[in-house]
Design a protein around this nucleic acid. Structure first.
Length: 142
DNA sequence: AGCCTGACTTTGT
DNA sequence: GACAAAGCCAGGC
């Protein structure tokens, strides 16, 4: 989501460095501590840095990683986020309109909203209130 | 190998 | 603001 950011004609596509597509496996869940720097781990890392009481969007994370066009993959990464033991505040990640699209993936669907409200984020109709204000841009704040 | 699906986004109508 | 289409990458069949 880059409302003001000009669309650089040259699509950054892959700002070298972030995308290390080699042996990309979701099996990054290695208790041994040896985890591949796959796309998923990067997403987890960013998601984990979301300040409490703030929210962000998949696209923001994707853009931060340079894969703005692959926001979907961020969602995929969130799936693994539930598998891993590491604390990944997936509830702080919503779609660009602030809709809790992933609430249905929680054990109790309402858990996501509860977690958010518990952090001070008001949710109305599966939608984050004042989303624009609570929005946290990893590319900017990070 | 191909084909389909998916916690999304952007652009155009 | 809403709807439709295209693009993205990874995983499962």
């Amino acid at each position: 989501m880059l409302p003001k950011k000009k669309r650089t004609g040259t699509n950054p596509a892959r700002p070298g460095g972030s995308s290390a597509k080699k042996g990309s496996s979701i099996n990054s869940i290695k208790p041994s501590g040896k985890r591949d720097d796959s796309f998923f781990d990067l997403v987890h890392a960013v998601a984990r840095q979301i300040p409490r009481g703030r929210v962000t969007s998949y696209g923001a994370i994707a853009a931060c990683l340079g894969t703005r066009l692959s926001a979907r993959m961020v969602g995929w990464a969130m799936l693994s986020a539930h598998q891993v033991e590491k604390p990944v505040p997936a509830h702080r990640v919503v779609n660009r309109v602030g809709l809790l699209t992933g609430k249905h993936h929680y054990k109790p669907p309402g858990r996501m909203q509860e977690l958010l409200e518990n952090e001070g984020v008001k949710v109305k109709d599966d939608k984050v209130v004042d989303f624009a204000r609570l929005f946290w841009d990893p590319a900017k704040e990070l």
